[in-house]
Design a protein around this nucleic acid. Sequence first.
DNA 1: AAAAAAG
Length: 417
Amino acid sequence: MTFTDFAFDDQLLDGLNSMGFKTPTPIQTQAIPIVQSAHDLIACAQTGTGKTASYLLPVMDGICRLEKRPPISALILAPTRELALQIDQQVEGLAYFTGITSIAIYGGGNGIDYEQQRRSLREGVDIVIATPGRLIAHLNSGGVLLDQLKYLVLDEADRMLDMGFQEDLLRIVGKLPKVRQTLMFSATMPAKIRKFAEKLLNNPQHVNIATSKPAEGIKQEAYRTFDEQKNKLLLSLLKEGDYNSIIIFASTKEKVKHLSTDLRKLGLKVKAFHSDLKQEERQEILLNFKNKKVSVLIGTDVLSRGIDVDGIDLVVNFDVPGDPEDYIHRIGRTARAETTGTAITLVNNKDFRKFKAIEEFMGRVVDIIPLPEFLGEGPSNPLASTNKNGNNRRKKKPFRKNGQRKHFSKKKPDAVG
DNA sequence: AAAAAAG
């Protein structure tokens, strides 16, 4: 199968060829005909599967074929600014010969950005790619020409609901024409998403190519460590290994900030990436990472989904993500497009059960690598320890009189908020 | 549990 089988507009095909697209991916093969047949669509698919082109191509083809183009033909909603920007860049590449116009609408920029966005939304632009918050701000100021829109796409719908965008999304959809084509993409399909889809979609067709299994090309490893050992272990992993491009994930912004200063003190050239940075800084860092001017990025989960950077050969989970889905997304930053990569997770005692849950979710175990000798003993495996009866059941909670609670851990003040 | 997104 080739892209010519879809009978796309010639100019769109030119753009496709110039971007080096050859063979459609499974999601594209399945989704494109559905969109072309004017049905609504729910697709369960992760990034890296060719998901973005699977809706951009038929939507852009549809726009090329409109007898009269409305001021705004398509609205694409995405959870993060980086994803919105990335989609917009893909539109620009594909649209090169078509005359289709687009703009990414998101917050965090300067007043000039806001004015440009406002003008486009009031004067018309074929495709709008937006994060919900900023689009709402524009809708509140009025004059946004969405009343003749043909296509609505919700990308990473599960992530948008997780981020509390449900009400914003419903408000946005309330401003759109009832007759339109709606396409929803989500990495997971919990009941919450299904219910949400029922509100927005009309008799949708389903496509499912999602999997709880990470790509074959990812070598997964884990180390059991105490927190005090993590920095030194990380340093040795980075120094011993022959890696060109590395992402290190940590679960909070504070951890990301601390870790990047720590690693810098240890002599590594690293950049931190999180939402406390100015949007221009975020973009510059990501650009330099893509250019390979920056080789080590330390980031929060804002980087875990949707970011498509070629050539990342190592992902380190400095701690274990709480949600197995996030683990899959994080390690999926490496081994993209048929390449290989390594994913290493540092597991302390507190995270051990979360890590077991991830293994269960994937249906496979991850090799535990012994700590390098210079680090001394790591923690022993709490689930493998045997009690005096010789079985490996975990110890029962000690009986307590009067049901009192015993405080095992005090919350650190900086761990709050 | 925290992240992100509107200032």
